[in-house]
Design a protein around this nucleic acid. Structure first.
Lengths: 98, 98
DNA sequence: CCGGTATATTCCCTTCTCGGTATATTCAAG
DNA sequence: CTTGAATATACCGAGAAGGGAATATACCGG
């Protein structure tokens, strides 16, 4: 879901401010249907919501699912909490495998 | 990538402690090749690393990519930090919007 | 060297994803 | 009612992903 770079770019654009589909299309360099399909995925994942203004659809961020990821990440955070741990893990990585 | 529930379970198991493939297979209820293939994906994404001990492969967490997600998440965090902070930032950054 | 154990790789099939083109829908304006 | 703008949906093809079964590889004990 968030592995998709295009969708992360959409979220980054929506972090600035809400955008209508046409602007997103232009800034992403996609076709309009391509943009709409990403927006549909994001909508169904609850990451964005739409505000309808005549023919324009203003898409805006819905941060709740991101907050859930943030929560899921919590127990892992101790792994890089101190620079010492990070350095140890880094050296281990370099020395062992790839 | 992390949308895959099986892979999130693998990471959760590896958060406890390193595991050899056989234990992961048993605790996940997958076939052994299925487990190995998920581990390969996680390895190529840099999320786990292997320590070889005779025939056993001990898989352990590699937190760097998770730290990157944590970093990517940073600018979004203000959206749910506290409702008061969120409102303040909203007014600061989007004062002229609608 | 041989058998057994632990793991990886390959093949096959089905389902999903992403991008594009073409078409439908909705609404405002005239 | 017709036109044009903004957006959504349907459909198609290439490629990736997920799972199982079968097979290969690597290593230990004897």
């Amino acid at each position: 879901m968030l592995a998709e770079p295009t969708r992360r770019r959409i979220l980054d654009l929506l972090l600035e401010r809400p955008h209508p589909v046409g602007e997103l299309t232009a800034r992403l360099g996609l076709t309009q249907p391509g943009t709409s399909k990403h927006l549909r995925v994001l909508r169904e994942a609850g990451l964005v919501q739409v505000r309808i203004d005549a023919q324009r659809r203003w898409y805006e961020l819905c941060p709740a699912p991101l907050a859930e990821i943030d929560t899921w990440l919590t127990p892992y955070r101790r792994l890089w909490a101190t620079s010492l741990d990070a350095l140890e893990l880094h050296l281990e990585t370099m020395g062992n495998d790839q």
